[in-house]
Amino acid sequence: MSDAPSTAAPSAPPAVVVDGLVIRYGDLTAVDGVTFSAEAGQVTAVLGPNGAGKTSTIEALEGYRRPAGGTVRVLGLDPIADHDELVPAIGVMLQSGGVYPGIRPLEALQLFAAYYDDPLEPAALLRRVGLADRQDTAWRRLSGGEQQRLSLALAVIGRPRVVFLDEPTAGLDVDGRRLVHELVRELATDGVAVLLATHDLAEAEALADHVVIVDHGRVVADGPLAEVLTGTAEEIRFSAATGLDAAALGHRLGAAVAEAAPGEYLVDHAPDPGTIAMLTAWLAEQGASLGDLRAGRQRLEDVFVRLTADAAPPAQSGHDGARRSRRASRARSRRT
């Protein structure tokens, strides 16, 4: 679907780089030191429960949110400072809306085609997303699924090199979902970097080459999906006073230690009892008190529980409706 080369050179820099990203809304910190990268020719899923900071992260890459800290780069460019240079090369699908309520699908595609130098052919793209028979229907009269498919078509019409999709299959039926999955796989095969925000574990499993799992504004796991699911990478996170000598601690533990955010430390070592004993002993020597201690794996499982709780039927029978039950099961899983 794009003229971009089908294989990126091994030495090519990542299409998307997020480094220590922080986004705040007033007092609320929505994204708290997120770091990951996404490669051309791959589907990267940013996976997490609702409110984890996925949309804020994607919107920083699209240039809608100004980071309070850290940096983001898309194709080596700053999405805000280099906005004019970057926009011809990206495609965006918002979580909802983004299209004139009165416009018809073919008109919308023709309009967007006029923004780009070498667009896809609007009528062919309309057929490809299965909306050829809806070309005379105003956007506001399309079904939710049809709106999603048109939004996806508008995101790719300019032959982008990077595509951002925010919950692209929310509200789609089985056929619509399959169509979107096909299109997304095609984009990646054509060498496009696809960044997908989703709260749907099954969608990430079906589509992603690489998943970045976020929770409460932080990355809890990052890697190829299979690796994340089987959990080979393990780590210890703890909070303590800021400015501890991470190098000295690393020397003691025989593992890399980094202060990921002020007062938040990351130890690249499995959380076995011996290592944890050494860690607490070292902290005692420094006179530093331990805030909270987490093994990465446990938090990941906590996230998975909540992700799958979203997809599963209501855990409790009752008259409150699914939404309430889901919230309840999420709250339960948080306590465990």
Binding site: G63, V87, P88, L94, Y100
Partner: peptide
């Protein structure tokens, strides 16, 4: 209504 429906936001990410 353009603003309410996210049209202005979406156009902001195009070369328009």
């Amino acid at each position: 209504f353009d603003r309410q429906y996210g049209v202005l936001k979406r156009l902001g990410a195009t070369p328009l």
